[in-house]
Design a protein around this nucleic acid. Structure first.
Lengths: 160, 160
DNA sequence: CTATTAAATAGGAATTATTCCTATTTGTCA
DNA sequence: TGACAAATAGGAATAATTCCTATTTAATAG
């Protein structure tokens, strides 16, 4: 598969920046480019390390601030994790999260049923909803097998 | 309305502690009692301030550690908020969250449709799910009216 | 009731993440 | 090209959370 040219890649980003009167700086472009290629859910610090290869004297504050700006304009989602720094989710397609409350791991998954949920009317009256995500909290198999793990025994069971 | 006696209130808590081999310390009891009366979603620091009235020399670490322990045994949920300390949610009934990405406010709401969602089979294979919560991210009316606010224009609309 | 033991606690220090501050640079627009 | 507001780098400050260790305490068995 042929990789898109950089200018093609950046076009929608430049559009978006103009819409929000954000200046198109090389720092923002570099962060955007790395973000579109990011797998999983990078932290600001991880993004800083990655972008610094291309941009050796970029500052951490710029990376973090830029990611927060991107979140405001709907380019990324912010994921908050227990016991760790916040992460940025560049996948803006409908998806959902499983969150292991022991190791903190977050796993994306997809579900048409979840995607098709409506927003309750009383919410639409009071709030403008940008994203809708089902978050499942629980324990992954790896943690379940750890020594000393004890279930609190209130797992959700599907109706048969 | 007559308030329940303290021993009545604490019975289910003591049961739970025994189930998990947690010692029933006066600190834990005090934190539990205040937690059941908490409105909204207190932070560890807020709980510390409240509990200290009854327990002047309790330490912050104990309050925070205890709340995390309570989360592990399913007594509270942990809510992570952008731009602020984590909060604890003592309402373990089915409920869902609207989260304002501007001011960080979290509003509980209830929805039978959301409660009745099943868990996808491929998730149940790999994870034990304790809680299922729909999180709506967006902007509340108050923030929407703020000067300088600009919509990024990708709000979710219900199908008619 | 007492002794034993592992768990829990208090207090403070250390660490980590995030935000703030300010001088300087840079993108945008006329 | 010049003016100006926005953005940045670098470091300092703040805030939240976790860690460390000596001491205390709840649970257990004798």
């Amino acid at each position: 598969m042929q990789k898109q040219s950089v200018s093609d890649c950046l076009d929608p980003f430049i559009e978006l920046c103009k819409k929000f009167d954000l200046k198109i700086t090389p720092q923002r472009c570099a962060i955007y480019k790395e973000l579109t290629q990011a797998k999983n859910h990078p932290t600001a610090d991880e993004m800083f390390t990655i972008v610094k290869k291309e941009f050796p004297n970029i500052s951490y504050d710029t990376v973090n601030r830029t990611l927060l700006t991107f979140a405001e304009i709907g380019l990324v989602d912010v994921i908050l994790t227990k016991g760790g720094p916040r992460r940025f989710d560049p996948d803006m397609e409908n998806h959902h999260h499983f969150h292991c409350i022991h190791c903190g791991k977050i796993v994306d998954f997809y579900s048409d049923e979840f995607d098709n949920l409506g927003i309750p009317d009383h919410i639409q009256d009071d709030f403008t909803v940008y994203t809708k995500r089902v978050v499942l909290n629980g324990v992954c198999q790896k943690c379940r097998k750890k020594k000393g793990f004890r279930d609190h025994g209130i797992a959700i069971q599907n109706k048969k």
